[in-house]
Design a protein around this nucleic acid. Structure first.
Length: 605
RNA sequence: GCCGAUGUAGCUCAGUGGCAGAGCAACUCUUUCGUAAAGAGUAGGCCGUCGGUUCAAAUCCGACCAUCGGCUCCA
C-alpha cells in the first residue's frame, strides 16, 4: 500500500481532536464508560473504552458495530456546537483527585506512570483538555482550536475491535473504536475507495478466483491445499530458487518431518518454543514431534561427519515443510498458516567468515526482491535483543547465551548491514532467542504487516549441538550458523506475490501462459497445430486450447479474468495466412502475426 | 487464545417464526460465432454442527466449529 507515511501536522491535529470528540460522544452515550488512550494513527485515530462489570451486566453489551452510526451522529452534534478546546496544566494531585472522583482507573494509571517516569514528581504537571466546558481528557496537546475547524465530511468511524490495555495480554481487554479522518471529504472518499480496491487484490479473493489454493474443514484451519494452478507458481519459484542457490554455492539436503524430543531439547526449542509446536506423539521407542523448524535436522546433517576449516563455509539448502500450532485467531489466508514450506538454508562458517556470509545473504535477498520480483514496498528491520550489551533480568528466559556473545553477534550483523548499503531500521526486543536477525517486512493489501524473508545469525547452535570444525591450528572451534529464508515460505511469499501482481503473474509464473481460442470448432485442429508447434520449440510452455462451445467474446472474457498473459485467436484468416492473432494482457489486441514472430515476441519473457 | 461480527447451492447474495430463492458457474440441447457475458432447459440444499424453545425454526435461545476485522503472539 503506497499510503503516505508522513502525517502532516494539520491532519494530526484533526485526527487527535476527533479522538477527543469520540471519547466525549461515547461518554455521553455511556456515562459510566472508562477511557483508555486515543492516539492518532496512519489514516485516522482510535480510542479505547471499557465499561465496569456492573454497568456492562446491566447494558448487556457495550459498543458494537451497530452503534457506530449513532456515536458518529453524536460526534457531529458535538462538533457543530463550535466548542473551543482549552488546554490547562494541572498538578498531578489535582488530576489524580479528579480522575478518582470520575472513576477512571486507566487515566489514573497513566498519571501514576507519568509520575514514575519523572525525577521530581512534585513539579510534574499533566495536560488536560476541555472540549467546551463539558469533556475533560488527559492530553499531550496538538488539537485544533475549535471544533468548528473539524471537517465533518472528512471523518468516519470504521470499525470496532478488542485491544488489551497497554498491549498486554494479561491486562483486561478494552473496546477499541477506529475512525478514519482526513483534511477534506475528498481525501476520505479516496481513502475509502482505495480500501475497497485493495480488497479486490486480497490474495484470498484472487486465490479463489484464479483457483490457486483452497482450505477444507476436514483438513483443518491454517492447512492450505494447493490447486494445480497454485502448484505451478510454487514449483516455478522453487525451480528458480534451486538454480539460484546452486549458483550461489549452496548444496541441497533433505530431511524428515518428525524427530525425537531429544533433538528439540538439544536445540532449546523445548521449552522456548513448545507452545507453538504440535503436541508430542508418544510411541514405544520414544516421543516424537512434528517439526516446527528445519534447523535442528539440518544441524544433524552437518554433524554427519567431522569438518575441516578448508570446507567452510558449508551452505545446506532445503525446501522444508514445517508445522506450527499458531493461535487460532492469528490465522489469515496463506499469510499465516499452520503448515508451510520454507525456502530454508543454513550456512555453517567460522566467526571470521560470518560477516561476509551474512552480507552475501543480504545481497541474495536484494537479488530476489529487486531483480526477480521487482518488489519495492518493503523495509528491513534489524531485530536486536532488548539491551544489546547487558540483558536485563526479565529477558533471561527469552534469550539464550551470554551478553558477550550477543554483543559480538550484533556487531557482525550491524557491520554486514552497513556494508550492504541497504536501508534498515533497528528494533530492540525483536531478536530470535538464539541471535539477531534482519527481517524483510512487507504489508499485505489490507495493511497487515508480516515478515516475508529473514536472515539470522545464530551463535548459540554451536554449543547446543556441538557444531564444530577443526581449524588450522588443529583445535576444534564452534561454527557460526546463519539461518536464511529469502523467499520466506511458499505460502506467505505467494500470498504477497498474488497481491503485488494483483493476480497478473509475470509470464514465467503464470499458470497458463498462452491460451489459444479457435473462432469455432472448425478451427480447433489448426489451434492444436499451433499449440504443438509452440511446444515443439519449448516443451515446458504452458499452452492450452479453449474450444468450449461459447462465443469468442465469452472465452476472451474468461481468459482476461483468469489474467492469462496471451490469448491467441485463430479463425479463417489465420488458418489461410498461417498466422495467429494475439491479445496481450493489459494491451488488448496486438494484431495478427506469423507464429515465429509471436515466439520471438515471448522469447525473453 | 481474547474482543466483535459473519456463516443459506461450487461462487456472490436475497429470504426474520408457516412449502428453500435469484444471478453466475455446472450439465443437456440449440447456435459455430472476429476481440470482455448467445438462447432454452435440467440438476444442484442436513440453511456451519449439536442441543433447546415452539403446533411449527434458515429465522428465536445456548454451546461448539469455521471464517472475517482487530488485539496479543509470530524462528
Amino acid at each position: 500500500m503506497a499510503s503516505a507515511k508522513q502525517i502532516s501536522s494539520d491532519s494530526e491535529h484533526i485526527r487527535h481532536s476527533f479522538a477527543h470528540i469520540l471519547a466525549a460522544a461515547v461518554k455521553s452515550r455511556y456515562p459510566k464508560a472508562e477511557l483508555g488512550i486515543g492516539p492518532v494513527i496512519e489514516n485516522g485515530f482510535y480510542y479505547d473504552f471499557a465499561l465496569p462489570a456492573e454497568a456492562l451486566a446491566k447494558a448487556g453489551k457495550f459498543i458494537t458495530e451497530e452503534d457506530l452510526p449513532k456515536i458518529e451522529a453524536e460526534m457531529r452534534t458535538i462538533v457543530k456546537q463550535n466548542l473551543p478546546f482549552k488546554k490547562e496544566l494541572w498538578p498531578v494531585a489535582k488530576a489524580a483527585t479528579y480522575y478518582k472522583k470520575e472513576k477512571q482507573p486507566y487515566k489514573l494509571e497513566l498519571i501514576r506512570d507519568l509520575v514514575k517516569s519523572q525525577t521530581n514528581s512534585k513539579l510534574t504537571k499533566v495536560g488536560v483538555v476541555y472540549t467546551g466546558d463539558v469533556f475533560l481528557d488527559l492530553c499531550r496537546g496538538g488539537h485544533v482550536k475549535n471544533t468548528s475547524e473539524l471537517p465533518l465530511d472528512a471523518f468516519k468511524l470504521t470499525h470496532v475491535a478488542g485491544a488489551y490495555w497497554r498491549g498486554d495480554e494479561k491486562n483486561p481487554m478494552l473496546t477499541r473504536v477506529y475512525g478514519a479522518a482526513f483534511q477534506t471529504g475528498k481525501n476520505l472518499e479516496q481513502y475509502l475507495w482505495q480500501q475497497e480496491e485493495a480488497k479486490k487484490r486480497d490474495h484470498r479473493i484472487l486465490g479463489e478466483r484464479l483457483k490457486l489454493f483452497t482450505f477444507a474443514e476436514e483438513v483443518g484451519p491454517g492447512l492450505p491445499l494447493w490447486l494445480p494452478a497454485g502448484t505451478i507458481i510454487r514449483e516455478e519459484i522453487e525451480k528458480r530458487a534451486k538454480e539460484v542457490e546452486r549458483q550461489w554455492g549452496y548444496e541441497r539436503v533433505s530431511t524428515p518431518h518428525i524427530a525425537r524430543d531429544i533433538l528439540y531439547k538439544m536445540s532449546g526449542h523445548i521449552p522456548y518454543y513448545s507452545e507453538s509446536m504440535y503436541p508430542p506423539m508418544k510411541l514405544d521407542d520414544g516421543t516424537y514431534y512434528l517439526k516446527a523448524m528445519n534447523c535442528p535436522h539440518t544441524h544433524m546433517v552437518y554433524k554427519a561427519y567431522p569438518h575441516s576449516w578448508r570446507e567452510l563455509p558449508i551452505r545446506y539448502a532445503e525446501y522444508g515443510t514445517v508445522y506450527r500450532y499458531e493461535r487460532s485467531g492469528t490465522l489469515a489466508g496463506l499469510l499465516r498458516v499452520r503448515g508451510f514450506t520454507q525456502n530454508d538454508a543454513h550456512i555453517y562458517c567460522s566467526k571470521e567468515q560470518a560477516e561476509e556470509e551474512f552480507l552475501n545473504v543480504m545481497r541474495l535477498h536484494e537479488f530476489w526482491y529487486k531483480e526477480v520480483f521487482g518488489i519495492q514496498d518493503f523495509y528491513m528491520r534489524l531485530s536486536l535483543p532488548d539491551r544489546q550489551a547487558g540483558l536485563p533480568a526479565k529477558d533471561k528466559k527469552k534469550y539464550a547465551g551470554v551478553p558477550k556473545e550477543w554483543k559480538e553477534a550484533v556487531e557482525i550483523v550491524r557491520s554486514a548491514m552497513k556494508k550492504s548499503g541497504l536501508p534498515y531500521q533497528e528494533v530492540e526486543g525483536e531478536a530470535a532467542f538464539y541471535g539477531p536477525k534482519v527481517d524483510f517486512q512487507i504489508r499485505s493489501v489490507i495493511g497487515r504487516e508480516e515478515t516475508a524473508s529473514t536472515n539470522q545469525l545464530d551463535f548459540f547452535a554451536a554449543s547446543r549441538f556441538n557444531l564444530v570444525y577443526k581449524d588450522k591450528d588443529g583445535k576444534e572451534k564452534p561454527v557460526y550458523v546463519i539461518h536464511r529464508a529469502p523467499l520466506g515460505s511458499h505460502e506467505r511469499f505467494v500470498a504477497f506475490l498474488i497481491e503485488q501482481y494483483a493476480g497478473a503473474f509475470p509470464f514465467w509464473l503464470a499458470p497458463v501462459q498462452i491460451q489459444i481460442l479457435p473462432l469455432s470448432v472448425k478451427f480447433s485442429e489448426y489451434a492444436e497445430r499451433v499449440r504443438a508447434k509452440l511446444l515443439s520449440h519449448n516443451k515446458n510452455m504452458r499452452v492450452k486450447v479453449d474450444d468450449a462451445q461459447e462465443t469468442l467474446s465469452k472465452r476472451i472474457r474468461e481468459g482476461e479474468t483468469m489474467k492469462i498473459p496471451y490469448l491467441v485467436i485463430v479463425g479463417e484468416k489465420e488458418m489461410v495466412d498461417d498466422t495467429v492473432s494475439v491479445r496481450e494482457r493489459g494491451k488488448g489486441d496486438i494484431g495478427a502475426m506469423k507464429l515465429e514472430q509471436f515466439e520471438e515476441h515471448i522469447k525473453n519473457l
